[in-house]
Design a protein around this nucleic acid. Structure first.
Lengths: 329, 329
DNA sequence: TTGTAAGCGTTATCAG
DNA sequence: CTGATAACGCTTACAA
């Protein structure tokens, strides 16, 4: 591949002049400028970003670590990141972690080697190894999906507890006697634990004795929604079920329909996420919609502000909205 | 950030020795090696990949350009790419093009600047500007989704014509008199035109006069499936409909159900893609399943083979499979 | 076994 | 307005 000296030779000038033309800086003789531009055009020369990066100590690249890109939430998130990054002339290196803390840290180390300017990380837990890495790395970090405060971390988060609380309150507002819940794994602080606590809080406020509360913990899959709905009905005849994500909610509905229990007439169901399926399914699923795309945009904005030294906010909230559909009317 | 000279000083050795330890090459005194390793550990030092890349003229980075990452097909594709890349110690720079040829070429140029080792590109058309770029770029290219032969391009493709042909034949094999089709935009060579041609071929083979063929061109959205199903029924009472993707097929089913036409009893429907919704919808949707994840894996394998100079195949086929579900039983 | 120095491709500085 | 030079961080040939 051609370098700047090759171009200089072809145009009969010095590398410095070529550089000046490329960065259209300073004063350069018009005739020479034209000669250089012509050569540039003909050769399709592109400056080596590695060399530039080495010099400026800046790569215009952001690292992005998400658990699973084929999950629609994260692909929307990444889409927002990529769009906003591009608009600010940044690119992204995408890595997936499968939600394994080991691999997450591995990703951070690789991204550090590649000298990304910042890292956007969607994860569920912040282990000591994560912190250790953060300690000897001065790369700006934007964390999505958990609200840990740690040093200079910027965190973008949904108030999972409140969203869940609102969803359950919404169900009680319909005159329901008792709402059951299918939770996620409770070690998952955001989508597991916090959503469970919101449920707990709303239930107690509606006069349910904590000992009578009915909830089962699933793993976010359709199957676990199906199974847990079964378990719940074996235990008590509830009037409504709130699931920590849409897949489990859909699994629950499927179990109900399979057993000739009508949704929403007999049991109302509310999910979480607004997966595209929620809208299309019959009955369509009421749910909590989170704008992941926008979360991605905000994450990049925060990262870049931080890089440009005009950073300020450390905790950026993202909005949610209860979408009422057939499953809970 | 620390550099190799800082480490050298801290360990009381020369940069060369540190380098030797890092790349555990050559002979280095055991005691010094230990000293260096200790400093490495304490400081969390990571070598600068930019400097290395500059030296070796190799970045261990692949560029990936897809139309839209939030489309499940492409996110599966990217997932496969990322997994296989990682396994070979490559990373990926992800860019999205929105299927706009202008932006595609823009992506290529940026990736060239970043000196990626190879580019994996999912697109629908190869314009002159694409070719021009390819001409003065010697980066290995793997193209997914179109079977253009151009110079050293490696192309991974589904035989869309044949898959579509098989789907329509499958419907005729059920004793259907006439199959209608909702196509994609015909300028889209792979998912639009080729799938239409497969339909045409199978129809003619089953005794349909080309003039009597019924097809409408949609734009891959649910809405366009809905609208076009309506138009088809206004024109003729068909017994089956084949849609160029699942969204249009689902839109068609929705229209049928809304008008009390039973699926599959009255009209059978087959889609294309095996979108996750296809399996869950009621009635579940028969479709053609393509393994995008595996396509991603194959794309990376081909790219790396090419980089290592052991490249051979230029055209790599990917498999498909007809999935029979309720909508066409 | 170890250290010194050149070079990868670019740009900023400085001298002309 | 222009060109030579040093420097970014790393590795490797060469010399010690």
């Amino acid at each position: 591949m051609l370098n700047i000296r090759d171009i200089a030779k072809l145009a009969g000038v010095s590398p410095a002049t070529v550089s000046r033309v490329i960065n259209n800086s300073a004063n350069v003789n018009e005739e020479k400028r034209q000669r250089v531009l012509e050569v540039l055009e003909q050769t399709g020369y592109k400056p080596n970003a590695l060399a530039r990066g080495l010099l400026y100590n800046k790569t215009f690249t952001l690292g992005v670590v998400v658990p699973d890109i084929s999950n629609i939430n994260f692909s929307e998130f990444v889409k927002g990141i990529e769009k906003e990054a591009r608009q600010n002339s940044y690119n992204i290196i995408l890595m997936t972690s499968g939600n394994e803390p080991e691999r997450e840290v591995e990703c951070f180390e690789i991204l550090k080697e590649k000298r990304v300017d910042g890292i956007i990380f969607a994860g569920t837990i912040l282990t000591d190894r994560h912190k250790q890495h953060l300690d000897n790395s001065n790369i700006p970090f934007v964390v999505f999906g958990q609200d840990f405060e740690y040093k200079s971390l910027i965190s973008i988060n949904l108030d999972n507890l409140k969203a869940s609380y609102d969803a359950v309150r919404y169900l009680y507002s319909k005159g329901i006697k008792k709402v059951a819940m299918i939770t996620g794994p409770l070690w998952d602080k955001s989508a597991g634990y916090d959503r469970y606590i919101g449920f707990l809080k709303a239930s107690i406020e509606n006069g349910i004795n904590q000992r009578d509360l009915i909830y089962k913990d699933g793993d976010f899959t359709i199957t676990s929604g199906y199974e847990n709905m079964k378990k719940i009905l074996e235990q008590d005849r509830v009037e409504a079920v709130f699931a920590a994500n849409d897949f489990m909610a859909l699994g629950a509905i499927k179990y109900l329909l399979d057993n000739n229990i009508k949704v929403p007439q007999d049991i109302k169901v509310v999910g979480f996420d607004d997966n595209p399926i929620a809208k299309i399914y019959t009955p369509s699923l009421s749910t909590i919609k989170i704008d992941f795309y926008n979360a991605g945009v905000l994450a990049v904005k925060a990262a870049i502000k931080c890089l440009d030294g005009i950073g300020d906010e450390k905790r950026i909230p993202i909005e949610y909205e209860i979408i009422e559909r057939q499953s809970s009317i």
